Simulated scan of single mutants.
Amino acid sequence: MESPDPVPADGTEMFARYAYAPNALGYCGPPDTAGLRGGSSAAVRATAPLFSGAWPYL
């Protein structure tokens, strides 16, 4: 049986994937989600420090 996501995500893609939903609901992170949704790795890396709760874990 094949894995549902056969290509492992890199760290920036994984962060963007899991951070987008709570950020879109206004729970954490900056008000502008453009850096997470469809952004480049550089945009995600620039946005990540703005998540005060997740940043210490990164």
Rank of each mutant, 00 (worst) to 15 (best):
A21D: 09
A9F: 10
L50Y: 00
R37C: 04
L58H: 10
E2T: 11
P4K: 04
P31F: 03
P30A: 13
P6T: 09
D5P: 00
G38L: 07
P8D: 07
R17Y: 14
M1L: 10
D32G: 08
S52K: 15
A34I: 00
V44P: 02
S52T: 15
A42V: 03
A43R: 12
R45F: 00
D10K: 01
G29Y: 10
G38S: 04
S41C: 05
M14D: 11
F51T: 01
N23V: 05
F15S: 04
G53A: 10
L25P: 00
Y27E: 09
S41K: 13
A42Y: 02
P4C: 01
A48H: 09
T12G: 06
F51I: 02
S41F: 01
G29L: 05
P8M: 02
A9G: 05
T47M: 06
G35H: 03
F51Y: 15
P49I: 02
L58G: 11
D10T: 05
L58Q: 10
G26Q: 03
P49S: 03
N23Q: 15
R17M: 12
P6Q: 05
M14V: 08
N23L: 03
P49Y: 03
R45Y: 00
A48I: 04
A43W: 01
S3G: 01
L58C: 10
Y20K: 05
A54W: 13
T47Y: 05
D5V: 13
Y18Q: 10
R45K: 13
A43L: 09
M14C: 10
G35Q: 03
A9Y: 10
G26F: 06
P22C: 06
L25R: 14
S40K: 10
D32C: 07
G26D: 08
G29D: 01
S3H: 14
L50Q: 15
A54E: 05
P49D: 01
T12E: 14
A16H: 08
S41G: 15
P30F: 02
G11T: 12
P49V: 08
P30L: 08
T33H: 09
Y18A: 11
A19M: 12
